[in-house]
Measured scan of single mutants.
Amino acid sequence: GLMCLEHEDEKVNMYCVTDDQLICALCKLVGRHRDHQVAALSE
């Protein structure tokens, strides 16, 4: 899978609806997407 741009060791596994961007779990937990609307990726 694709790796996160901000956290190079994390794979992107969710999608930020607010930013129209693929993000990883760390982005959602501690990153700038924590208050955004996110959706899980169905692979």
Rank of each mutant, 00 (worst) to 15 (best):
K28A: 12
K28N: 09
D20N: 11
D35N: 07
E43A: 10
H7P: 01
V30K: 14
N13H: 04
H36A: 02
R32W: 04
I23W: 03
R34W: 02
H33S: 01
V17C: 14
Q37H: 07
L41F: 07
D35Q: 11
E10L: 05
D20R: 08
L5W: 02
E43Q: 04
V17N: 15
H36K: 11
S42C: 10
E8D: 06
A40R: 10
M3K: 10
V38R: 05
C27Q: 00
E8F: 07
V12R: 11
A25G: 13
C27M: 00
M3S: 10
D35E: 12
I23P: 14
C16V: 01
H7Y: 01
D35I: 02
D19L: 00
C24G: 00
V17R: 14
Q37E: 10
D35V: 04
Q37C: 04
D9R: 11
V12E: 07
D35R: 04
V12D: 15
A40G: 11
L22R: 15
E8P: 14
V17I: 14
D20K: 10
M3Q: 04
K28I: 12
C27N: 02
E8A: 14
A25Y: 04
A25L: 04
A39E: 10
Y15A: 11
R34A: 14
D20Q: 12
D20M: 08
V17A: 14
C16Q: 05
V38W: 10
M14A: 11
Q37A: 10
K28Q: 15
L2H: 13
Y15W: 08
H33Q: 01
G31R: 04
Q37R: 08
A39C: 10
D20A: 07
G31F: 02
E43T: 05
S42T: 12
H33Y: 01
Q21W: 01
M3V: 07
E8V: 12
C27K: 03
C24F: 15
C4S: 04
T18S: 05
E8M: 14
K28F: 04
K11S: 08
D9T: 05
L2T: 15
C4P: 00
T18A: 09
C16N: 06
V12H: 08
H33R: 01
L5A: 10
L29P: 12
C4W: 03
R34S: 08
C16K: 04
C16S: 07
C16H: 05
A40S: 12
C16P: 04
L29C: 11
L41D: 13
L5E: 12
D19H: 02
